[in-house]
Measured scan of single mutants.
Amino acid sequence: DYEVGESVTVMDGPFATLPATISEVNAEQQKLKVLVSIFGRETPVELTFGQVSKI
């Protein structure tokens, strides 16, 4: 299970290999909103559970 505030690594898509912090969890739809730090700015990205891995 994923929790808000948890650190994960993006495994898929254009942000693969980047660390991210979970900002929202939708367990019903198996989706997460995460904040990816790009060029010093936090960018919100919506991903599925399968696109991230716990650190």
Rank of each mutant, 00 (worst) to 15 (best):
D1Q: 13
D1T: 14
D1M: 15
D1N: 13
D1H: 14
D1P: 14
Y2N: 02
Y2V: 03
Y2I: 03
Y2G: 01
E3A: 13
E3T: 12
E3W: 13
E3D: 08
E3C: 11
E3P: 03
E3S: 13
E3Y: 15
V4W: 04
V4F: 04
V4P: 08
V4D: 03
V4G: 02
G5A: 03
G5W: 04
G5T: 02
G5L: 03
G5K: 03
G5F: 04
G5V: 01
G5I: 01
E6A: 08
E6W: 07
E6L: 06
E6S: 07
E6I: 06
E6G: 08
S7G: 08
S7E: 13
S7Q: 14
S7T: 14
S7V: 15
V8E: 00
V8F: 02
V8D: 01
V8W: 02
V8N: 01
V8M: 02
T9K: 08
T9V: 15
T9Y: 15
T9Q: 10
T9I: 15
T9F: 14
T9N: 07
T9M: 15
V10F: 03
V10C: 04
V10T: 02
V10H: 01
M11L: 13
M11A: 07
M11K: 09
D12C: 14
D12N: 10
D12I: 12
D12Q: 12
D12S: 14
G13C: 04
G13V: 02
P14N: 05
P14M: 08
P14R: 08
P14A: 07
P14C: 09
P14I: 09
P14Y: 07
P14V: 08
P14T: 07
F15Q: 02
F15M: 05
F15L: 05
F15A: 03
F15R: 02
A16N: 07
A16G: 05
A16L: 05
A16F: 05
A16I: 09
T17R: 12
T17A: 09
T17E: 08
T17L: 10
T17F: 13
T17Y: 13
T17M: 12
T17W: 12
T17I: 04
L18E: 05
L18S: 06
L18T: 04
L18R: 09
L18I: 06
L18W: 14
L18Y: 14
L18K: 08
L18M: 12
L18V: 05
L18D: 02
P19V: 15
P19I: 15
P19A: 13
A20E: 00
A20F: 03
A20N: 01
A20Q: 01
A20K: 02
A20L: 03
A20M: 04
A20P: 00
A20Y: 02
T21L: 11
T21Y: 09
T21N: 05
T21M: 10
T21E: 06
T21I: 15
T21H: 06
T21W: 10
I22Q: 01
I22V: 11
I22E: 00
I22H: 00
I22C: 03
I22W: 01
I22F: 01
S23C: 14
S23Q: 14
S23D: 06
S23Y: 15
E24M: 09
E24I: 07
E24K: 06
E24P: 00
E24H: 10
E24S: 09
E24N: 07
V25A: 03
V25R: 03
V25M: 05
V25L: 06
V25D: 01
V25W: 03
V25K: 03
V25Y: 04
N26G: 04
N26D: 12
N26R: 07
A27P: 10
A27N: 13
A27S: 12
A27F: 15
A27C: 11
A27W: 14
E28N: 09
E28V: 11
E28C: 09
E28I: 10
Q29L: 12
Q29P: 03
Q29F: 11
Q29I: 08
Q29G: 09
Q29V: 08
Q29E: 12
Q30G: 13
Q30V: 04
Q30I: 03
Q30Y: 08
Q30C: 10
Q30F: 09
Q30L: 09
K31S: 10
K31M: 12
K31G: 04
K31P: 01
K31C: 08
K31Q: 08
K31E: 05
K31I: 12
K31H: 06
L32S: 00
L32F: 04
L32H: 00
L32C: 05
L32W: 01
K33P: 00
K33F: 08
K33V: 15
K33Q: 09
K33G: 05
K33E: 05
K33Y: 09
K33N: 06
K33M: 12
V34A: 07
V34T: 03
V34S: 01
V34Q: 00
V34Y: 01
V34I: 06
L35Y: 09
L35V: 12
L35T: 09
L35H: 07
L35E: 04
L35I: 14
L35K: 07
L35D: 03
V36R: 00
V36T: 03
V36M: 05
V36N: 01
V36W: 00
V36G: 01
S37M: 14
S37L: 14
S37C: 15
S37R: 14
S37T: 14
S37F: 13
I38A: 09
I38K: 06
I38V: 11
I38Y: 13
F39I: 06
F39Q: 10
F39N: 14
F39V: 06
F39C: 13
G40S: 04
G40H: 04
G40F: 04
G40L: 04
G40Y: 04
G40W: 04
G40P: 03
R41E: 09
R41W: 10
R41A: 10
R41N: 10
R41P: 05
R41D: 07
R41L: 13
R41Q: 11
R41G: 09
E42W: 13
E42K: 08
E42I: 13
T43W: 15
T43I: 15
T43G: 05
T43F: 15
T43C: 12
T43Q: 12
P44L: 15
P44G: 09
P44Q: 15
P44K: 13
V45P: 00
V45C: 07
V45D: 02
V45G: 03
V45Y: 07
E46R: 05
E46H: 07
E46G: 04
E46S: 07
E46Q: 07
E46C: 10
E46V: 09
E46Y: 11
E46A: 06
E46I: 10
E46M: 08
L47G: 00
L47I: 06
L47Q: 01
L47R: 01
L47Y: 06
L47N: 00
T48P: 06
T48R: 09
T48N: 12
T48V: 07
T48F: 12
T48D: 12
T48K: 09
T48H: 11
T48Y: 12
T48I: 06
F49E: 02
F49I: 04
F49S: 02
F49Y: 11
G50P: 06
G50I: 09
G50H: 11
G50A: 14
G50L: 12
G50Q: 12
G50K: 12
Q51N: 05
Q51C: 05
Q51T: 04
Q51D: 05
Q51A: 06
V52F: 02
V52D: 01
V52R: 00
V52K: 00
V52H: 00
V52I: 07
V52S: 01
S53F: 07
S53C: 12
S53L: 09
S53G: 08
S53M: 12
S53Y: 07
S53D: 06
K54I: 06
K54G: 04
K54E: 03
K54T: 05
K54V: 05
K54R: 11
K54C: 04
I55N: 11
I55K: 11
I55M: 12
I55W: 10
I55Q: 10
I55P: 09
I55T: 11
I55G: 10
I55F: 10
